[in-house]
Nucleic acid binder design. Structure first.
Lengths: 191, 191
DNA sequence: GCAGAAATGGAACGGACACTCCAATATGTA
DNA sequence: TACATATTGGAGTGTCCGTTCCATTTCTGC
């Protein structure tokens, strides 16, 4: 835990180096050696401030997500529109961190420690989407709101993946189709 | 190079072990030690038959792809329901290819060579979904069918990812909500 | 300016990894 | 059978990784 001014500054240098490395060389290139070298810090200093290497990586991702959060304070004022917009901004923005996030999620397919972290943040997001949905339609049951939030987030994640692999893919347009307010072009539902 | 009968058999044992490992622990869990242990083979025997670990992994993937007929009949009789069902079965079933596919897709976010492969198969699948959609509603334009296919596949991919990370997640239930026959909101009926 | 706590660098550790080396053995051929 | 060579296991190599340890230095409240 950083308590002194110098400690906080070092923490920022480490996060900054981690951020830059994630952007430049990807998750596989982020080694402790690289981080400490770029931050001009000894390994001891690093572990004085972070519990593990992953701890620093997740903190960088957390901050990146928070930076596009329409309601960082958790006041409950964000709409579904806002949330979808934030997700799209995160995925299609200039920050390469979205890429890292998806790669980590992929790694979570085999690494239980990462899976639990990814899952935790996923569940938090589902809750957020479900709340917004219920706020827009108070008659909706909580269970249904959660189910819809799961589908919407699944869709957004998948679309984000496509967008990252295919730069010409228009994620925003497709994402907007997911919104209940969207009244698009016509396909009568099949019976 | 295997020349004798025993060598060819050993080669098959190695490929079989690699295939099983890819299914069970994913691409990152496939170590040389694991392969040789499961195949009951020494490291020397392995390198007598394969140039590298990746050589064996790529061979397994190549064979797996080859063994899956993308459109056996080519009759174009499959419905959206069938396709979604197949996708869910693919993701939640015991087949190793789904996990490998997602893990490779994640790796493709930084590796252009892998990205192009992933993208190609993705586009092929979009086409398949779009065709089915147009078959069910001939009045739908091709562009719109493709747009819907993109959203649906994005959702399925994202849900599949969640399902792989969280075994308790009911992918099939959520996937069904994506179908136009379902009166959900995720893909809204259009006016 | 002193004491106690925080911060520091970097050597050292233990483990994982892909891969090499080689003496011993098995195999196919003539 | 006799010979060339394919095949074998597994100890050993070099490298890289995250993390720990600790003597030393720096910081800050009093």
């Amino acid at each position: 835990m950083a308590r002194y001014r110098v400690g906080l500054e070092t923490r920022e240098r480490i996060l900054s180096a981690t951020r830059r490395l994630l952007a430049e060389v990807g998750i596989e290139g982020v080694t402790l050696k690289a981080i400490t070298a770029h931050a001009r810090v000894g390994a001891g200093s690093f572990y004085n401030l972070f519990a593990s290497k992953d701890d620093a990586v997740f903190e960088v991702i957390r901050e990146a997500i928070e930076s596009v959060d329409p309601d960082p304070a958790g006041a409950g004022t964000d709409t579904l529109d806002d949330l979808v917009d934030a997700f799209v901004a995160f995925m299609t923005g200039s920050s390469p961190i979205a890429r890292i996030y998806l790669q980590l999620a992929g790694r979570g397919l085999t690494d239980p420690a990462i899976a639990s972290r990814v899952l935790r943040s996923h569940r938090r997001r589902v809750e957020r989407f479900a709340d917004a949905w219920q706020r827009e339609d108070p008659s909706m049951s909580e269970a249904e709101a959660i189910a819809r939030a799961e589908v919407m987030l699944g869709a957004l994640t998948g679309l984000g993946m496509t967008a990252l692999i295919d730069p010409s893919f228009d994620m925003r347009a497709h994402a907007n189709e997911l919104l209940p307010s969207h009244q698009g072009v016509a396909v009568p539902p099949l019976s």
